[in-house]
């Protein structure tokens, strides 16, 4: 029942996954041209210089009930069938929030004033950056619990997990006091390059589920889906 809390700013980014960023920008099998690649290189170094990754995670004992998934020691009950399905077989979960901090938002704003095309690329790669931070957090949790099995990370808003629960989720983690992340308009996080997600922890092997579009950040804006295609991830 005891909560486990970890909060640091020790994660640094040294390079960004250009393939992933190109995917966010809508490049499937085509590659970006030289001009765009140059802008991508610039964005990568500017993001690495400006972003200040911060994160907090807490581990809770959980239980699935009719009301939803209950997180012991808190008032949080996550709703919907998607999160229940995701956490099947798990008796604990890690609630995570990571951010690149407001310096990242500022860099995007300044870039929007100077060069809108570059700003679009900057925005996509900032998304890549925060996901990479989450990858490192997951590794940390894995190292801490070597004999447990972890699910992939499930974001608030995925499937039928209501985005409206973002505020409660962040309150449980105390993110406004610890890493400076708050909710705006009920559903969006500020600073904008932030991720709020849950990783399930089980004593037994998790049945591998294909991720699919439902879990992707880009599903609303995805150019592949618009064309009736899939990107293959």
């Amino acid at each position: 029942m005891k909560e486990y809390i970890n909060m640091f700013d020790d994660i640094t980014l040294t390079e960004l996954n250009k393939q992933e960023g190109a995917r966010y920008l809508g490049y499937g099998s085509e590659k970006p041209d030289d001009r765009i690649m140059k802008l991508i290189d610039e964005c990568e170094s500017e993001i690495i210089a400006a972003a200040k990754p911060r994160y907090i995670y807490k581990l809770f004992d959980i239980e699935t009930t009719d009301e939803g998934v209950v997180f012991y020691g808190t008032n949080l009950i996550l709703k919907g069938s998607s999160i229940k399905a995701h956490l099947t077989g798990c008796n604990r979960a890690a609630c995570i929030c990571a951010t690149l901090s407001s310096d990242m938002d500022k860099l995007i704003r300044v870039t929007q004033v100077k060069d809108m095309a570059k700003a679009v690329i900057m925005d996509a790669f900032a998304g890549v950056a925060v996901e990479q931070v989450c990858d490192k957090i997951e590794e940390q949790i894995k190292d801490m619990l070597p004999d447990k099995y972890l699910t992939y990370r499930f974001g608030i808003g995925y499937g039928d997990l209501p985005l409206e629960q973002m505020g409660e989720f962040l309150a449980v983690l105390g993110t406004s006091k610890t890493i400076g992340v708050t909710v705006t308009g009920g559903t969006m996080m500020s600073p904008t390059k932030s991720v709020a997600c849950i990783v399930g922890i089980s004593d037994n092997q998790i049945k591998s589920k294909k991720k699919g579009c439902i879990t992707c950040n880009m599903r609303e804006k995805c150019q592949f889906r618009v064309k009736g295609e899939r990107c293959g991830f």
């Binding site: 938002d105 500022k106 400076g180 708050t182 909710v183 705006t184 308009g185 500020s190 600073p191 904008t192």
Partner: peptide, 13 residues
């Protein structure tokens, strides 16, 4: 203490 929302332009307050 603080209101719990970020001020413009990062937030919407």
């Amino acid at each position: 203490g603080p209101i719990g929302q970020l001020l413009e332009p990062t937030g919407s307050l």
